[in-house]
Amino acid sequence: MPSEKKSEELASRALEVLGRPREEFRSTLIVTSEELRSLLDAGSATAEARAARTAAELGAFAVGHIDIEKFSSFQQKGAAVPVSEAPRLDAASRTLRSLLELGDDLYFVRVSSGGDLRDSVSHGLGRAGRAFGAARTVELARSGKYDEEVHGGWLDSFPPSLWNRREWELAPPLIVEVDGADLRPGGLMEFLDGNQKIVLVVRGPAPPAALARLITPGVTVLQTEDPAELSLVAEAEGPAIGALMPPDSCRFVHVPATGEGRARLTVHHMPDEEPKRALGGISVFQQADALRHLATLAAGWGLAAAGDVGPSGDGASGPAGAATAADKLAAWILRQADLQEAG
């Protein structure tokens, strides 16, 4: 299907733009995995195995010059891991390696048509979150606090509801393909924490201002049609969500305040058409209400789009485009006022 192909293409563009957060998560996986490998090497080995390991680590220059067995008897013993816990550490190590082997697939989820966006995101993050689960398993095992009852499933899924502050800071980025008709982002609020980056690649008609509901002071929120603009999400400090929207959706960006005189909400485009049809279970009212919300926020901050340049330095909409957006926004606000009077 052409649209599917297009969304795949957009998803891979999104992947590209999210290169840095992806690389950071992968690096964290690698460093953790290597540390765990060292722990396993050091912890469970016999004296002979340790000597063999020492010989390997000292390399060829030591041959004939260093008595390896003796040398290995002097090295610092790593933190002792109870022998009984070794299998658990092995399992954690395998989990980390399997995540590494997943490569970029780790950062993708697809919401099947009619599926629940929130659940899919939770599932995707819970999958990458197994890295956190694995690390916690290791920590618990070596401190003797591991409890199968409580921690048993952590290597299979470690959902965001269990993440701590540090884990949120190291959160894996996620790219989500979702039908416009399933775009109910309200449930995503709980995932916008720490350093979480989420990109929604929206297929087919969608509520034009769906993400407006996510605008809160500390979160970067972006709706755009241009994958390159996703760099605003990738480079944002703190949590950020962006959606690649179908044509004639709202295009806006909200960035947490960075100082006086800098725009927080910039609206680049308002749709030409008002929502007329329900999309999936999303009613006309809900769609329009999101638009109203966006307009209210923009008006409330006195930023009627024109002339406001977000930190993006936004080249997508020149002054003319901005002016049009401003006009439309003004018109919108007026219309809403009329509607309310009429009602």
Partner: peptide, 15 residues
């Protein structure tokens, strides 16, 4: 150098 730190750290995160 890579900028990452290991995840291996004690569990008491929210102290």
């Amino acid at each position: 150098m890579s900028h990452s730190c290991s995840l291996l750290a004690p569990v008491d995160e929210d102290q």
